[in-house]
Nucleic acid binder design. Structure first.
Lengths: 252, 252
DNA sequence: TGACGTCATTGAGAGGCCTCAAAGTCGTAT
DNA sequence: ATACGACTTTGAGGCCTCTCAATGACGTCA
């Protein structure tokens, strides 16, 4: 399993050679201009499971793109519990919500081994001055995030446990598909507990819904491995269309 | 009640003469540059209660600032019910969530007689090219909105009915105060039904909580008139600090 | 001013989800 | 390989909020 000649070290892949460039920030730039973005990006060592990318209260300096792996963001409730605010898959951008403060309003933690591209915000703003398209893309990302958060608010205030979990699974599936992975079977990077926390449900409820979904032939779940067996019914439960109420994913 | 000599017609107040300028978009501009913003703003006739500013699906053309009155934004759930996504008070900006689509993702409706400043988005973008501060302010507004939506998600997934309503009242109070109104007593522009819809509660629950709050001396409510009688306890219920989990309000 | 419709309040009952508890499974590290 | 801890599953019971229903208050318009 040593590296083969034609396989670059992942931590050195340039934007122009990155398979995610069409989903990530570079999509706002022409081939020629991508290298400019590339130059300001810092690529650190991989984060191990449980390591933090930044902590709530840390000074806001950068936004981040996920290259591989998965992260969650969370904040502390008044009672000191953890409240998960989002899950982030490869090509998704996090850190934008800190932009109008001097500190990050949430903590970001790796749920598995994760590689990250760091984009120092000051330099990103400078680059935005040069490339209006990049600026508009950043705005679109934030606008999209607002709409997705509103979908999430609707989920939390109107949907029952079954519908919440169906929505969550369909959303994950569609994000996997867009990244070229199977939307039929995939591996959850979060625990049942984290899923429940995010969806406003107790762990036990999540577990019971999973069991029920399996009895009804909607899914098959072995540990974190999920297979969607009846996507039509699952989508119906989720509320019709293939929703995507969570992080920032792709372009329009 | 005819207009007095020194009172301009409200629909003609320029940004530089507007009492809200320090809370609204102009705060990003110097006195000298405000007039440039002023020139692109359209000031239409007042909206009567129940009238729509825009409908979900309308082509996205402008963002709006509330001059007086109050609006709500809402979207339709899959079952065709209304889901309120925000309430907007004077100086607050709405319409930003449509920015990355060609249509508004929500409808906006006046809850009372309301005056609006319309800012055509194309011209706002052009102006943004000239004034980086304006651009950054727009970004900050969106970033702030994301954080507030996340507060709202926390409310919906972790708080009980008492805490939700306490949070809502404290949030409204702090927004009134910032606008120079009393934060102790004010008039709700929304019905109990709308409040419940927004907070993920049934009307009856809202009503019962109001009754209980009055028995406990936290507030006094006569119809839509609210008086906060024990702001300390109410803040404690809301979860400590004076939160503001809703629309876009002011600067840092 | 009276009548109507909308909104708010109050009560009774039911249901969904949470909490508590315990057993079972998985992953990991020694 | 084994033992430990973390995670998952399942059960029983209770509570909070919703639903349904009816009465009461308010505001509006003829």
């Amino acid at each position: 399993m040593t590296s083969k000649p034609n396989v670059r070290q992942p931590s050195h892949v340039a934007c122009r050679d990155c398979s995610l460039s069409s989903l990530c920030l570079p999509l706002a730039l022409s081939i020629k201009d991508i290298d400019q973005l590339d130059h300001i990006i810092k690529r650190g060592r991989p984060l191990k499971k449980g390591e933090h990318l930044f902590l709530e209260g840390d000074p806001f300096t950068s936004v981040f793109a996920v290259r591989s792996g998965a992260l969650k963001t969370y904040t502390a409730t008044n009672e000191g519990e953890e409240q998960i605010t989002g899950f982030y898959l490869p090509s998704e951008i996090l850190g934008l919500s800190g932009m109008d403060t001097d500190t990050y309003p949430v903590s970001a933690q790796a749920m598995e081994t994760t590689m990250i591209c760091e984009i120092p915000f000051e330099q990103l703003e400078t680059l935005s001055d040069q490339f209006p398209e990049l600026r508009r893309h950043l705005m679109r990302l934030m606008s999209k995030r607002i709409r997705e958060d509103q979908q999430m608010m609707m989920l939390l205030s109107k949907k029952n446990a079954d519908e919440r979990i169906a929505t969550f699974l369909i959303n994950l599936a569609s994000r996997f598909r867009r990244r070229g992975f199977s939307s039929q079977s995939f591996r959850l990077s979060m625990s049942r507990n984290e899923m429940g926390n995010y969806l406003g449900l107790a762990v036990e409820t999540v577990s019971r819904v999973f069991t029920r979904f399996q009895k009804n032939g909607l899914i098959s779940a072995v540990g974190k491995e999920i297979e969607i067996r009846n996507s039509v019914k699952l989508c119906a439960l989720a509320g019709g269309k293939t929703l995507e109420p969570n992080p920032i994913a792709t372009n329009a």
